[in-house]
Design a protein around this nucleic acid. Structure first.
Lengths: 210, 210
DNA sequence: CCGCATGTTGTCCCAAATGACAATAGAAAA
DNA sequence: TTTTCTATTGTCATTTGGGACAACATGCGG
């Protein structure tokens, strides 16, 4: 399986035409009559896929679908297909994060190329997500106190510093720290800091320590 | 000063018209008759700025100018201005990284909005760059051996591990490690790891340690 | 030949982190 | 009420990291 393509178009003939073309090219295909329809049958995340969206569909504009999807935690790339698009709409769509923008009639070449790229993009996104999601889950599993310790520790504070900052004994911090390491499933401070950076829990804050 | 705008257009009347409009809006302005001209008089990096590029200029296509600039380490956003653009060209330009795409005649509102956005973007880029550049410089100042130690240390290896990996004494690693910390100008391992992550020196490699 | 940078290694001591066993107290849930 | 979770603190021994002195070898340019 090379990937999954979700076709959204209210024109049945276009849908079936596309479906046939893409299935022949080796893709899994699902069709929807509207953007809402797509949102309802939320595609299984985790498989590299993309959405082929006819901009003519009335219920949800492209950008809106985009933001709706990302709210749901999805990063599926969207390829817009338009009949007679105007420049401003095109610019808006692409700047809003469309992965590509095609005009009808779509040449098979362009279509397949765009889809290949989009699915490749999503593959990368999925890989990233599958790495970061568990980390976020681990952080979510920390208690409030543990999170405080976590934040200070990954900034290079020593147990003593943290103890002073949080108003308790060094020994206490030590205990929390151990639990943090366990829950985050890391063995070393370096790994902990790496995770924090990747999650963005350290956004621009590398100040002095001692 | 709100920012710097570099206008590239071979049409003198357009240049001066734009220049006047933008100066009135409070921007610093420089004009160029060709993309090459812009590249020659490489704009001073560090000031939030943007390029207003007429796609008609013949010497360098937009995307080419873009890549040429980024080769030179610049991240100036480019706003394309086109007369009668076609969709594919628009799509290509924006996907290639254009910050915005305007069509003539450009309304003052659109223009100023686009420029404001672009300069804001560049402001962020500049801030980021001014943080990362010195770090890269520090890394470049490491000796080969020091860099080896650096790479292992930020992955969580202990001095003992590194010593074993590089075939020398723990004491030796200790010495290198100290010099690394000095040269990178950090006090703690956490900071060192943060820098490594931000520079991308740790791309997906958080494996076991002990 | 000499100075300098680089890499190497040493000892002594102290600070910091880890791990092994622990215990106590309050709050929330069963 | 009893269990469970969370936060708190303790000691002791060990490992690691960091700082303060160092020394020695090599290779390169002046």
């Amino acid at each position: 399986m090379q990937g999954f393509v979700h076709i959204v178009d209210d024109d049945a003939s276009f849908r079936t035409a596309m479906e046939r073309r893409l299935k022949r090219a080796g893709y899994e295909v699902a069709t929807y009559t509207s953007a809402q329809h797509l949102l309802d049958h939320l595609p299984s995340e985790g498989v590299p896929s993309c959405v082929l969206l006819d901009v003519r569909v009335p219920d949800l504009s492209g950008p809106k679908l985009q933001s709706r999807l990302s709210e749901l935690g999805s990063t599926v790339p969207i390829i817009f297909v338009a009949d007679h698009p105007d420049i401003p709409a095109t610019v808006r769509a692409i700047k809003a994060g469309a992965d590509d923008f095609l005009t009808k009639p779509v040449s098979s070449d362009d279509l397949l190329q765009a889809i290949k790229r989009a699915i490749a993009h999503h593959g990368v996104q999925c890989a990233l997500k599958s790495k970061l999601d568990p980390v976020r889950a681990h952080i979510a599993a920390l208690t409030a106190r543990e999170r405080q310790v976590f934040e200070l520790v990954v900034r290079g504070k020593t147990n003593k510093d943290v103890a002073h900052a949080l108003g308790c004994t060094e020994r206490t911090i030590k205990a929390h720290r151990q639990r943090v390491m366990e829950k985050m499933q890391v063995q070393t401070l370096a790994e902990l800091v790496s995770l924090a950076e990747r999650i963005g829990a350290l956004a621009s804050a590398t100040e002095q320590t001692a």
